[in-house]
Design a binder for these strands. Structure first.
Length: 636
RNA sequence: GCCGAUGUAGCUCAGCUGGCAGAGCAGCUGAUUUGUAAUCAGCAGGUCAUCCGUUCGAAUCGGAUCAUCGGCUCCA
């Protein structure tokens, strides 16, 4: 018997007897890998573990720890779920069941709608199937044979899928009595799945097209260890605990009302937070050479025709009439900013002109997508429009990148960058787009920032760089965006006077950093779980007298704190100190000052820090110094 | 917008097969004067989302509307 050699990922080779499978290779590398192996990659193609290797094959063994491995694992779990559903509800028709970023789903066409109780039964059945430890068998057949099989099974969606497959040969996977059209690969047997959970059921259109039939989609997730599933479920719980919609109400920051769906109401404490945020934003923009403007919310239709919004953005806009004339409520700030630019003649010496605007825009979002402060119908963009000469593009983009970096770091966020290119409904020529896209790319390369490219995801007037920031539990949020625009200056006939006294066309750059103030506040709430750093806290200090006779002392402290613009509240409620402390902790106030007979005699306060406890007695003046330092430095 | 679930006091929730609307927390009043995450007692609080219907009788059953939540991008 001759041996074969296969080449591993690191270039090393191992010897195997002829006829050896991927699984044999995994075992040979290490018994542990053999145990953990899910599937493998042979010469770049994903294969099942029972794939027979040949001499000089390049192989890689996949385990759950790789994203490819996870995907296969999730996909196999979706097949098990489909089998369970078919066993319980034979009338259900199978659509598709892929792995997704965070788990898997399977779409079914079935008359009844799945209930939470059904989920429990399906999970039960899945456990049974896993216990049966059925092998996943790969079957290769001709397309015609496959058609016959699924015709007999009356699986019309599978037949439809078959129609779209070009290859003559297709693969089927079978475990037990369950057979599915599938490219594979799969885990060797159902017993491989160690921990799973069905998460939710939702409607979804066949092939994502609303003209097609609505199917029922069941979502789930699986892991190769019970503890990892528990971790995942804990993270879901943690996200729920941080939900800004609940915290926003509990901490009296904002509210939502039926009378204005998608239009958030900011309460006094929410406004404190908002004003701090906006003031900080203004300071940083002034430092970076921006001026600030404010443009009207309602503007004449003619402006929106000219800007292209009428043609490209109408579905998302609100309209009104004034004196029989059509007006639109602005969905973006740029046309207003352009009118300001056009008010005067500009010299090349003025450029770049950086015009910032905290602009309130309204957009008609579908009712089903509204979500707290994250997805609303009116929001304040921290917008800016930079008018510049073409040779200033690079520097300006880099300037915006720097400012963005500074702002995000202040809140403790890390981030990643994505570049979006020309979309289908774009205005302007390919050359202009190419030039604009290249400028953005060059700035990123020069700044040594890694980025992902999203083809066709740009705005209709230009390509863009998006900043996605990452919160403390690992979720990412799209906030900042830089969009280069050669088209608006053209449409509005913008110009500046160059050195030689001739008119020249400026380039425009649209950008936001926080994105939407409302949304950013939502992100801050979730990131800090409502426990804001001192500089952002609506109430920074809570004054807690031990007994009623110490209230006057508290009022004096209050006066002192006010002198330094420290935001404090005095708790005058007739309660034991434990209850007052509890209340302040639940309100997530960063500092509590507690004072009774001992403190009043010596001008002291007992300091308690949120989440940490008693820090001991110090002079009030000392406390003020310390907290002012913390506020000034924006300590996290 | 579409599919599904949900909607009872400010909040969290109970209320069975139709028969007088309930609790805890929060609020108010009083007692207590408290030493680092809940003192005790009393009071008040409701168009059971809205409308229409079935019924002797509807929070409960049916329909419509509104809102909220989850999903509708991931393609064998």
């Amino acid at each position: 018997m001759t041996d074969i050699k296969v080449i591993l990922l690191d270039g090393s080779k191992i010897e195997l007897s002829k006829g050896a499978t991927l699984f044999d290779a995994a075992c040979k590398i290490s018994p542990r890998l053999g145990k953990e192996a899910i599937a493998g990659i042979v010469n770049g193609a994903k294969k099942d573990l029972d794939y027979v290797l040949e001499d000089d094959d390049h192989i890689e063994i996949l385990t759950f720890s790789s994203s490819d491995g996870k995907e296969i694992y999730h996909h196999s779990t979706s097949h098990i779920m489909a089998q369970a559903v078919k066993e319980l509800f034979p009338e259900a028709k199978l659509a598709i069941g892929p792995a997704i970023k965070d788990g898997f789903y399977y779409d079914f066409d079935i008359e009844r709608s799945f209930t939470p109780e059904d989920m429990v039964i399906i999970e039960q059945k899945m456990k049974e199937i896993i216990e049966r430890d059925l092998p996943f068998k790969k079957i290769e057949v001709n397309k015609e044979e496959a058609k016959k099989i699924f015709k007999d099974k009356e699986e019309k969606y599978k037949l439809e899928l078959l129609e779209d497959i070009q290859d003559e040969k297709v693969t089927l996977y079978q475990q037990g009595d369950f057979m599915d059209l599938c490219r594979g690969p799969h885990v060797p047997s159902t017993g491989k799945i160690k921990a799973f959970k069905l998460l939710s059921v939702a409607g979804a259109y066949w092939r994502g097209n609303e003209k097609n039939k609505m199917l029922q989609r069941i979502y789930g997730i699986s892991f190769d260890k019970k503890s990892e599933l528990e971790n995942y479920l804990r993270l879901v719980e943690e996200a729920k605990r941080r939900d800004h919609r609940k915290l926003g109400r509990d901490l009296e920051l904002f509210s939502m009302h039926d009378e204005g769906v998608g239009f958030p109401f900011f309460h006094p404490k929410g406004m404190v937070l908002r004003n701090i945020l906006e003031n900080y934003w203004r300071e940083e923009h002034q430092k970076s050479g921006y001026t600030e403007v404010k443009t009207p919310i309602i503007l004449n239709k003619s402006l929106w025709m000219k800007s292209g919004h009428w043609d490209h953005y109408k579905e998302n806009m609100y309209f009104t009439k004034i004196d029989e004339e059509d007006y639109a409520i602005k969905p973006m700030n740029c046309p207003g900013g352009i009118l300001i630019y056009k008010c005067s003649l500009h010299s090349y010496r003025e450029l770049p002109l950086r015009m910032a605007e905290l602009g309130l825009v309204h957009r008609h979002e579908l009712s089903g997508v509204l979500h707290g402060l994250f997805r609303v119908r009116c929001f304040t963009q921290d917008d800016a429009h930079i008018f510049m000469t073409p040779d200033q593009i690079g520097e300006e983009i880099k300037g915006v990148i720097d400012l963005t970096d500074r702002l995000y770091k202040t809140f403790g966020f890390s981030y990643h960058v994505e570049l979006s290119t020309k979309p289908e409904n774009a205005m302007g020529s390919d050359e202009i787009w190419e030039k604009a896209t290249k400028s953005l790319e060059e700035a990123l390369i020069e700044k040594e920032i890694k980025y992902i490219v999203n083809e066709g995801e740009g705005a209709f007037y230009g390509p863009k760089i998006d900043f996605h920031l990452k919160d403390c539990i690992g979720r990412s949020w799209q906030c900042g965006t830089i969009q280069l625009d050669f088209i608006m200056p053209e449409k509005f006939d913008l110009f500046y006077i160059n050195k030689t006294g001739d008119k020249e066309r400026p380039v425009m750059l649209h950008r936001t950093i926080l994105g939407s103030i409302e949304r950013f506040i939502g992100i801050l709430i979730e990131n800090y779980a409502g426990a804001f750093p001192v500089w952002l806290s609506p109430v920074q200090v809570k004054l807690l007298p031990i007994a009623d006779r110490h209230i006057d002392y508290g009022k004096n402290i209050m006066k002192e704190l006010k002198k330094h613009s420290i935001r404090a509240e005095l708790d005058e409620i007739n309660e034991k100190i434990g209850a007052k402390v509890r209340k302040a902790e639940l309100e997530k106030v960063p500092y509590m000052l507690i004072f009774g007979d001992k403190e009043t005699e010596e001008d002291l306060v007992s300091v308690r820090k949120r989440g940490e406890g008693d820090l001991g007695k110090i002079k009030l003046t000392r406390f003020i110094e310390d907290i002012l330092k913390e506020i000034k430095e924006k300590t996290l």
